[in-house]
Every structure is written in C-alpha cells, then in structure tokens.
Amino acid sequence: MKYIFYPGCSMERNARAYLDSLMAIREPLGIELEEIDDWNCCGATEFMSVSPLAGHALIGRNLALAEQQTNGTHTVMAGCSACYLNLAKTDHYMLESPQLSETINTALAAGGLHYTPGALKVRHLLDVLMHDVGLEAIQRNVVRPLQGLRVAPYYGCMILRPDFDHRFNYPEYPAQLDQILGVLGAEVIDFPMKLDCCGGHMTQISKPVALELIRRLIHAAAEYKADMLVTLCPMCQLNLDAYQAEMNHYFHTDYHIAITYFTQLIGLAFGKEAKELGFGKEFVDARPALSRIGVQVPVTEPVATPKPKRSKQALPMPSLTRDKGETRR
C-alpha cells in the first residue's frame, strides 16, 4: 500500500522517535511512503491565529504539492494529529465553500500552484494502520508479545475531532488504539481520559492552565496503575513527557509515567531493537517499564543540571535536606 507522506516539523526533530519507529515497522506492514517533495510547516495552531486566510494558503501549498505527486495513490497520510487536522480542514473547507476555494487558489497561483478540493484523501496513521493494514496483519508480525505491560491508550484531540470524513465511528469512545495495543499482547486499561486535551501550546501562554491539563492525564494514568501512556501525536508526547518534571514540581507530586508512541510499541512487539525505535529520547525514563517485558535499552547520557559552585569565601549557610518520598497534594 502506497501513501503520500507528510511528516511535519515535529516528526523530523523533537518527535524523531515517532518517525524512526514508523520507518522500522513500515516494511513488515507493507506500507510504502512517498514524502511530499519540499513540504512546508502546516502552521500548527499559531499561523491561523495571526492570519486565518494565510494559514489556509500555507496548508494549501502542501496539498497542491501532494496533488502533483498522486502517482497511484490519492491518500495523504500524516502521523502528527495537528498536521493531519490542518491538511484535512483546508481540504474540507475548500470543498464546503467554493468562494474560499477560489480565494486560496488565487493565492496559490502567486507561487504557480493549484489545488482541486477533494482531489486528495487526508488520513491519520492510526486510521491507515487500523483500516488498511488491519489488526490481523499486525498480529501476524508479533514475535515478542508485550505480556505484562500495562498501557494507557491516549488519543488526544485532533485525530477524533472534528473527524470530517467520519473515519472513527465512536468519536467520544474510540477503541482503535486500544485494539492495536491489545493484539500486541499488552494489558490495555480502559483509560477514562483518553480523549482529553494535553494543552497544546498552552505551556507557552499560561503555565498554571497547561500544567493542570497535564496533571489530570498523568494522575489518571497513575490511578489506573499504568506503566506507560501511549500517544499518537508529537504535541501530546512532548507535553506529557518533557513537562512532567515541571508539573511534579508545581503540584508537589512524584509521578513517573513513561510516554511513548504507539509505533514504538508495535516495533517492540515485532522484535525490533529498542534503539532503532527511538527509545532513550524520552525525558521520563521508559526503561523501568520496558524491563518488565525483558527489553533492555542502552543507557543514554544523563542530563546534567548546572549547579552554581560555592565560593570558598562564602559564609556557611544552613541547608534543608529534602525528603525524597514526600508528596503533597
């Protein structure tokens, strides 16, 4: 099965583990990916906040480039939920409003491009794995079942909402990711927060709001005794993983829930090496969880926090020793 692939800026760098693990599993799953040539950023949620029409034109350029590449396939696939929604939205709104379609194409013409609304089908990686590849094909490739690993499946927002093409029949209670993790042999919990928002870019706008959104997700996963929270979006992974320490500090909690991509777990079950799947790039160490299923991850350099040196002439100061086990809520 061939797809036109839109990786997006995150997958290229901060969510490299997502891209690497996808590349590692595409062959056993029979997926062929052809990257959009010279694609640009989709604008995330920020470009439209400055100029909605230019935001659609920015996305339109990617659609126009992809349309030129429709060689045997009309499906554009993205792994990042925000990229997926942006591409799907511009296509859908252009189809809905001929006037908008004309305006965007007038803008695209300035760069010698054109997009015919509806020419492409925009789909998310989860949708492709579930509905094109299928659970059976995934199960066939499992050589190392993830027996004993307790996982919380987390969908986030933009893959299920607004879901213009109705790819998911129960948008308020989806099961696709649960089912995939299930056939890998993992113990899947019925995660009540699986659709709640991770906060997106809120970490940069209001810390208290953002950290609370992160806290309730991590807290729910811990309550359900999950070893790991499994995501399918770079933004969700970044927020829950990289900001977990700051969230702990802010709320005086002590959670350590590893945040991984579903493609990494698929790769593990397929017998791939942890390093090839990008393990080790996460902030909250996934090794304790992975050791439960007998997977060893090579140790990466620990991050050193620069500590100011004490001057020899400084006066002696009393210091408090922090009780490590102390948590306050």
Partner: peptide, 15 residues
C-alpha cells in the same frame, strides 16, 4: 525549504 520564494509570494497574496 527550497521553494521559499514561492511560499512567500503565496502568503503575501493571501494577506
């Protein structure tokens, strides 16, 4: 990206 000139023209026209 390679097509920076084209992208800038598209965004300017959109604005």
């Amino acid at each position: 990206i390679k097509g920076l000139k084209g992208l800038k023209a598209i965004l300017a026209r959109a604005r």
